[in-house]
Design a protein around this nucleic acid. Structure first.
Length: 212
DNA sequence: GGCCAGGTGTAAA
DNA sequence: TTTACACATGGC
């Protein structure tokens, strides 16, 4: 199937099957940014525990994370896994946003993205999650589920890069933060419905093996 | 008990 | 420029 048709149709099917997802599941901009780091290669349930710990200790903010000791942060975010590296990543990003951040950078999305990616622990997906979900800047978030479904439907190859995959969405789906927000969230929903596992349980899955 | 989860950085081939 | 591996907890 034509790539553009596929991407558009997939979005329509997911939206009508699952409905609006209304991401990101966070109250404040800081919480979204923190959650984007904590969720790296980790189940969201574990992230919720870490966020809950931060919240009850009044430290669910970049300002607090900047001032808190690394040991304290590590102990609070422990349930989210990889807690040592995530602690140092949170420190980096807390310093970035509370000290160096020039708000004018938001008018230069690619420059902003470049700066985020220069922080240790912020890669393509986390960077784009922050841009999209915390700042409403339309960069499509490519995750493991997205790659898996596009590979299965032969829209991309096995080793296409993150940016190559992202450029497909940027080319064929209007650059609109609201749409990119929902689309990525719907992909994750699809994954959580066990449609994108190694052994997909597709009984209730809106996406069938043969195509859309 | 093994596999997986809303990845990233580093080192070695 | 690829590939392999470490990082770590908790649910099923």
């Amino acid at each position: 199937m034509d790539k553009e048709i596929f991407l558009i149709k997939l979005y329509e099917i997911l939206l009508s099957s699952f409905g609006k997802q209304n991401w990101w599941p966070g109250e404040t901009r800081d919480e979204i940014i923190i959650g984007a780091v904590l969720t790296q290669n980790t189940n969201w349930k574990n992230v919720e525990k870490a966020i809950s710990n931060l919240k009850t200790n009044n430290c669910l903010s970049l300002e607090c994370l900047r001032n808190a000791s690394s040991d304290t942060i590590a102990s609070l975010i422990r349930p989210a896994g990889f807690y040592k590296q995530k602690t140092s990543t949170l420190k980096e990003i807390a310093y970035y946003f509370t000290n160096n951040f020039n708000r004018n950078i938001k008018k230069k999305p690619y420059k902003f993205r470049e700066e985020l990616l220069s922080l240790k622990g912020i890669g393509n997906e986390t960077g784009d999650s922050i841009l999209l979900y915390a700042f409403d800047i339309p960069f499509f978030v490519v995750d493991a589920y997205t790659k898996r479904i596009l590979i299965r439907h032969k829209i991309i190859g096995n080793h296409d890069s993150y940016l190559e995959i992202q450029s497909l969405f940027h080319s064929f789906i209007p650059k609109n933060a609201y749409v990119y927000n929902e689309y990525h969230a719907l992909m994750v929903k699809l994954g959580k419905e066990y449609c994108l596992k190694k052994e997909p349980k597709c009984n209730t899955c809106p996406i069938k093996k043969g195509g859309l």
